[in-house]
Write a protein that binds this DNA or RNA. Structure first.
Lengths: 129, 129
DNA sequence: TGACAACTACGAAGACCTTCGTTTATTGTA
DNA sequence: TACAATAAACGAAGGTCTTCGTAGTTGTCA
């Protein structure tokens, strides 16, 4: 009955998920059209990937119409958190600090973004015991 | 002339790099002994992986002795930054803020870690125009 | 010196990832 | 109704990842 845990998406799968998160429910054609703006990918490639993603439980599918309609099974934030946690474990020995430091140094964030992070920081320092 | 950019390490390769970063120069046996504490892995599996990593340029090797001595080619921080940047691009649309937010929410950081992050934040907000 | 232990090298198997051509089914339309 | 367009399904190829068995080499020591 769908345990709720999907496997880590591969690179190509993540690209498709990004489209699904951006556009909501999509047909294969929708996704292909969007992806074609960047990469050069055949239609059946996208189709096959999405079928596999369905088998894996990464997406759900409504096949009541001829053109099946796909949705991401997990919310974007859920998957993002999973990926961050995964990287945290595999590459940072579980140190959130190190990861955040690298992230902040890797790409300069805007003033607004920094302010937002500061806000969360205050929250965490204030509330947590 | 050795561009300095190594490919993204796979999961197993990253596990080996973690050992090399922790212990410094290592023989295959050193790495195998350490990894065996956690996973169950044959010696030749580790050997093969490290040979491949050498071919890829992920590690350097001193083969002047019978037991070759391996070192990580990139510093831990360099690889960490590469991986964070990669994830940032693939899963967060380049938004450092979102990634940091997810990281901070995913695993509670200690008071000291939070203070350290705050220090970096001050630096970034103060210095950059 | 001869046997054994430890090491590297090699190759191959099996799983997964990505790609796409081909086939089959459905739908809209002239 | 027949035809063209469009869709899903299928299968297979070529690549990578991870695993390990086996063979060959080198050092050690009784």
């Amino acid at each position: 009955m769908g345990t709720g845990d999907s496997p880590r998406p591969t690179d190509a799968e993540l690209a498709i998920l990004n489209v699904l998160w951006a556009l909501g429910a999509c047909t294969v054609r929708d996704v292909h059209d969007r992806l074609s703006q960047d990469r050069d990918m055949g239609y059946t490639t996208v189709l096959k990937l999405m079928q596999i993603m369905f088998d894996k439980g990464l997406v759900t599918r409504d096949d009541s119409q001829r053109s099946h309609v796909y949705k991401a099974r997990q919310k974007e934030q859920t998957t993002q958190r999973m990926l961050v946690t995964d990287l945290l474990t595999r590459a940072f020995g579980g140190s959130t600090e190190k990861l955040v430091m690298q992230a902040l140094s890797a790409k300069k964030a805007s003033k607004e973004e920094l302010a937002e992070i500061r806000r969360l920081l205050n929250e965490l320092e204030g509330g947590a015991s």
